[in-house]
């Protein structure tokens, strides 16, 4: 999948991702204000397939699931960071938003066009002929992400189980 890089620094917190004052407005409203403190034009310019790249401790702060949900709602294909806050990481995977760790972000720049290959665990910088290695995800999490998160993943699993039972 091809998209554009939106580059952020360290310690992007859940209040920047899902600002507290818009929590009552629902996910549309939250997504419209996602990351505006760091970058006012983010929500209005990000397109499905684009990639958020950041430094350390991405998603630090509260346990609110909306922080990951807002990014997913905007169509962000993945967040790639040097490290993630633990609860945000859990929430993101369970909601079906790929989060990947890259130890070396090399020469990624804001606005770069990239190809994200989740299977190969690579982010390819189209114009620079460079590839960034992503820490591989275990198969069980890969499957959960491919299914769209925990609930759709379980739905699929239970449907398959039922089919197997009735089929025999």
């Amino acid at each position: 999948m091809s998209g554009r890089v939106f580059l952020f620094g360290n310690d992007i917190d859940t209040d920047q991702l899902a600002p507290g004052q818009y929590m009552k407005g629902g996910i549309d409203m939250l997504a419209a204000h996602c990351l505006e403190a760091a970058r006012p034009d983010f929500a209005s310019t990000v397109k499905p397939g684009d990639v958020v790249v950041a430094g350390t401790n991405f998603g630090v702060g509260s346990s609110r699931e909306q922080a990951a949900e807002a990014l997913k709602h905007l169509g962000v294909a993945a967040v790639i960071a040097r490290s993630f806050a633990g609860i945000f990481y859990r929430n993101a995977i369970n909601l079906g938003l790929p989060v990947l760790i890259a130890n070396d972000l090399g020469q990624v720049e804001d606005g770069d066009t990239v190809d994200l290959d989740l299977d190969a665990g690579e982010l390819r910088l189209a114009t620079k002929d460079r590839t960034i290695k992503l820490e591989p995800l275990p198969d069980n999490l890969k499957r959960m992400l491919a299914d769209g998160g925990l609930v759709p993943h379980l739905k699929k699993r239970f449907a398959e189980e039922r089919k197997r039972e009735t089929g025999q």
Binding site: E65, L95, V151
Partner: peptide, 10 residues
């Protein structure tokens, strides 16, 4: 450890 409602349902 603590988990949210969606994970708990899982």
């Amino acid at each position: 450890f603590g988990i949210g409602a969606t994970e708990m349902a899982g």
